[in-house]
Amino acid sequence: MAVVIDYDKCTNCKLCYDRCPEGLFGLDEQGKVYVKYQHECWLCGACQMDCPFGAIQVRYEENVKPIFLKRDDKE
């Protein structure tokens, strides 16, 4: 999963919903923001940059090729 919302920090201000260049966030039946179209994310990072509460992380698959290889894995 690329975009992860930490609901302990999220205040449902909907800034991410408004700003995502790809319109990937949706509102559920209770009006709560969630990542509706996870696979259309191209990792621009805007939601994480602008979240006033630090509630969003956009994560690459951890230490997986082809993003980067830890040197000690190879040497």
Binding site: Q48, R59, F68, K70, D72
Partner: peptide, 17 residues
């Protein structure tokens, strides 16, 4: 950069393919 931080990695510790 943020992802290097999550993984506690220095730029000099990785090789980028």
């Amino acid at each position: 950069l943020r992802n290097l931080e999550y993984n506690n990695i220095d730029l000099r510790d990785v090789k980028i393919p």
